[in-house]
Design a protein around this nucleic acid. Structure first.
Lengths: 206, 206, 206, 206
DNA sequence: TATGAATGAGAGTTCATTCAT
DNA sequence: TATGAATGAACTCTCATTCAT
């Protein structure tokens, strides 16, 4: 397997398990089975590895979602739309974790060019999806699609952070008293999506 | 001014400007105008400082919100409820930034006891608010209040991350092409709140 | 109890348990039940506390030994002399530990005057004893008494170091293979004393 | 020269001059002409450096001594044995200083495994020597060789501590009154050895 | 006399990144 | 292309000592 891929795979599993700041280049190199210096042939900083992973994961997800929406003829009920969304999220645990960290990483030790490339790519994909969304959800007006997708994005960020677990949090959540903090990512995320969609459809907001 | 307060104030402005991981104890000491060792008389880790700030900021906000809701007689329209929320958020920029980092910090270098105390405090305040919310928004069923508050929390986390700025991001956002990423925290947050509320009120979800 | 004594007692037990470098002024203050600053009213450095303890412990021991030797009429067999020595060492565990550390401490952060006072005191006591020793051990020539006492001193230093235990060493010594390193302080010390005395008495050294 | 050797040489001269506790990793790095981080590529703690030095110095000495004893045919007078010992000690000033500190260092911040390896190595060498000693000194009974070597060891520890000098001690010893404390390491050490040997040979101890 | 909050230099250690091989 | 030894700045945290009260 190409070394670049090895590095990305190693980084992916480490970031997912241990976050961004607690993963060192040494760990990535070791897990990838390459030398530390080798990583720098493909990526110039740790942040760049992270962004590459985000680009991959988000790209794959958005492409998948778009392809699903593209097969739709006619319009969708909110329920149906959510079902498609839910399907597209299946098995995307890595993406959740990366998104939870993404905004923090984007602000440190990245060049303007890198951020720009990353954002441009993301924007392009999102716009495409948003256009499809505006078609299948007819109650949306022009431009509402992008706002909706962005709101969804913020919900993913929010819920993925709130449901991130660590050894210490797992212990805390075992205490009966803390049960109200035991959130299930998927349940909450899609319930929120649904509320937002219903709000957009039936709400009296101008 | 008491040293402890000086330290908290310094930490507050530094965390707000530069995040958690890029702020060092030395920086806090310098900004607070105290010796590095002095900080350790009051807080045993950087995380402890952060949690103390969160406890303060969230406490003040939730108490304020509750006191506002307590004056309500009868029930509220969603619009009115949002107005109260919006008011309670005014001038709470520090809280936004802290919340955006909170879940990441909670997972590193904190003792179970610290997390527990923090969460217990937060839970207590949240439950009180949720009860009031269920009263003033009559379409909510028993238990929906807490779920709603948690959804709001995840929106705050998500939007505060997405709108966090840094020198590099500010430059990126100056580029016309990037305009769609220029989110205003307040606008988006309250629009999302409103959608969720309207979804809860009018939605056909069971 | 006078504060000075409280401090010395606390320091004595801490140094005995944990050595010199791992004991902090805070620990001494806490154990003594006084404020940190109070210690500095009586001793100007940590080393001074240590030296005061050494002076006390060595003084008491040497005085006791001398008083025992003073009661002797006539001369002693080596066996008898050792018996008196052994008796004088009983219950002097604190002295062992302090002696093991003494020479290291004497070289750091002590003023010339302090060392001088300490040594002068020690010399005076040792000379007195040595004189008695030369009387009760008739095979000693003039001056051999002091040389003998000094040799004894070096044996006490050596054996007390070699038999000092710590949590890690205790674990090591539990391993059967390490049995040859399981020295008993008293046994070895007095066997060495005896060899030296017999060597001095019967040896063919000029 | 290999970095590891550079570090060991630097550490050796610093420990010899200034003891263990007053030598910092920064000092070692500076003296060795390498970066601080480089040291950690070869040694994971300061204690590990120290133990590596001890292992080297003691190993070389004991091997040398053993090789000398191995050339002996027949038995030795105490005088002859001491002469061989004296020769083996020549130029081993570093070893003296390290031994003086060894037991203190062995008790802090070392893993069980490290201590074990160190002791095992030392034991093996000592046992070999002890066997030879029992051959060349015919008045020794089975097992006395090891006891003798251990007594020698304690004398080395004791005398090396008592003759350790520091700037302050050198000043003290210049004062005429302090002349009785002006010990010469070699003189005293070998006189003590001789007394012990003579005691073992001629003594009436059972 | 007694306090203990405050100090600040310096400790050991880590790790992203470089570069000679 | 691949390596990994080397770097050194930066980190968190400690503690003997001071001094205003």
């Amino acid at each position: 397997m190409a070394r670049r891929i090895k590095v990305l795979n190693a980084a992916s599993s480490l970031f997912t398990e241990a976050g961004f700041f607690d993963v060192s280049m040494s760990m990535i190199a070791k897990k990838a089975g390459v030398a530390k210096g080798t990583i720098y042939l493909y990526f110039s900083t740790k942040e760049e590895i992270f962004l590459a992973l985000c680009t991959d994961e988000l790209g794959i997800w958005l492409l998948h979602l778009e392809s699903q929406l593209s097969t739709v003829t006619g319009v969708l009920e909110n329920e149906q739309f959510i079902a498609i969304l839910r399907k597209s999220f299946e098995g995307r645990d890595v993406m959740y974790r990366l998104i939870a960290l993404m905004h923090l990483v984007l602000e440190k030790n990245v060049s303007l060019q890198e951020v720009l490339d990353f954002k441009r790519n993301l924007l392009e994909l999102t716009v495409k999806i948003s256009d499809r969304v505006e078609i299948v959800l007819p109650y949306l007006e022009k431009g509402d699609g992008l706002a909706l997708m962005t709101t969804f994005h913020s919900l993913v960020v929010g819920w993925s952070q709130m449901t991130e677990t660590s050894p210490i949090m797992e212990k805390v959540l075992e205490i009966p008293e803390m049960a109200p903090f035991k959130f299930d990512m998927q349940d909450n995320l899609f319930r929120s999506f649904r509320l937002v969609l219903d709000g957009a459809k039936y709400g009296d907001q101008k």
